[in-house]
């Protein structure tokens, strides 16, 4: 009784779980492929996931997904809402640990390290795999403190000037420096939505992660702010590996090198972004791209 209650509570906040409860509800006329279509694997991957299954309590949110993410690559995860793409992303730096009823099976490798190895340190992992969330969530501190938070935690700077340098570099990389350099001591919550999101990106790259996960970073922003962030992602891709969940196919087409299409917890098709958008192989992918559901 109690778990059922919890499950509904979780389902209310996590779309993937909500969908997983009633997978039959969606149009089932088009069969799923036996295996992921296209090229889910690549040489020299930064991260590689194999046979991933994720459960919320008794219901399954992700079915047997295998995927590689190459170095300095931007991969877009697209699909209708509740298809498990955000869940998958959150598994990649173990943010799903904070949800009690979430169970993850399968292997996640970050280069040579198994992410779900009990011996692996979550703190260290999250320093290497950063995350930017759907809604900008700056801490209620000054802009400077927001960016300095991570480096301070991990002891990345010993001197004040080193910290200043990290903050400035991160803000520059996030394209925010010129806008905020005169008011670093003002609260981060006072910025506009787009600026806040770039502040969050600056905050996560301040600890020099290897991978940056972005969970629909632009869904709460207006088109101009979105354009700025997309530009930023493009610049960042030279230094970082980026996985971005997005709802907008145009965005996926604009920023990513590869695109993975999820449908109801299954990875249907992965390919070069161009290929996916110009010549989708599977009927579901095509249906989604042409806008028949979403």
């Amino acid at each position: 009784m109690e778990t059922a209650q919890n499950l509904t509570d979780t389902a209310r906040t996590i779309p993937a779980a909500r969908m997983a409860q009633e997978p039959e509800a969606m149009n089932q006329k088009i069969p799923y492929p036996e295996q992921t279509i296209g090229k889910p694997l690549c040489d020299d991957p930064k991260m590689s996931m194999r046979n991933v299954n994720v459960f919320y309590g008794d219901s399954q949110a992700i079915y047997d997904v295998s995927l590689d993410i190459g170095k300095n690559q931007v991969i877009a995860l697209i699909g209708p809402s509740g298809c498990g793409k955000s869940t998958f992303l959150r598994c990649m730096n173990r943010m799903n640990d904070t949800i009690d009823i979430c169970k993850v099976k399968g292997s996640f490798m970050l280069e040579q390290d198994n992410i779900y190895d009990p011996k692996l340190d979550v703190v260290e992992l999250r320093a290497r795999v950063g995350m930017v969330f759907q809604k900008p969530n700056p801490f209620p501190k000054s802009i400077y403190e927001n960016v300095a938070y991570g480096p301070r935690l991990h002891g990345l700077a010993n001197k004040k000037f080193e910290l200043d340098e990290i903050v400035e570099n991160s803000l520059r990389k996030a394209g925010l420096w010129d806008e905020v350099k005169d008011r670093l001591d003002q609260p981060g919550t006072g910025l506009s939505g787009g600026q806040q999101q770039r502040l969050c990106i600056a905050r996560s790259i301040a600890v020099s992660p290897e991978v940056v996960l972005m969970d629909e970073p632009c869904s709460a922003l207006d088109p101009i702010a979105t354009a700025k962030i997309e530009e930023l992602i493009d610049e960042l891709s030279s230094q970082y590996t980026i996985a971005i969940v997005t709802h907008s196919m145009q965005q996926a087409a604009r920023v990513s090198h590869r695109t993975a299409y999820f449908h109801l917890g299954r990875l249907i098709e992965v390919n070069d972004t161009n290929t996916v958008f110009t010549a989708p192989e599977h009927a579901l992918t095509e249906a989604y791209i042409t806008g028949r559901f979403g």
């Binding site: 999250r126 969330f133 969530n137 700056p138 938070y149 935690l153 996560s204």
Partner: peptide, 15 residues
Amino acid sequence: VPRAMRDGSLALGAT
């Protein structure tokens, strides 16, 4: 305090 605050900090590798 919103969950997003905690997530933001945890995702940066805070204990």
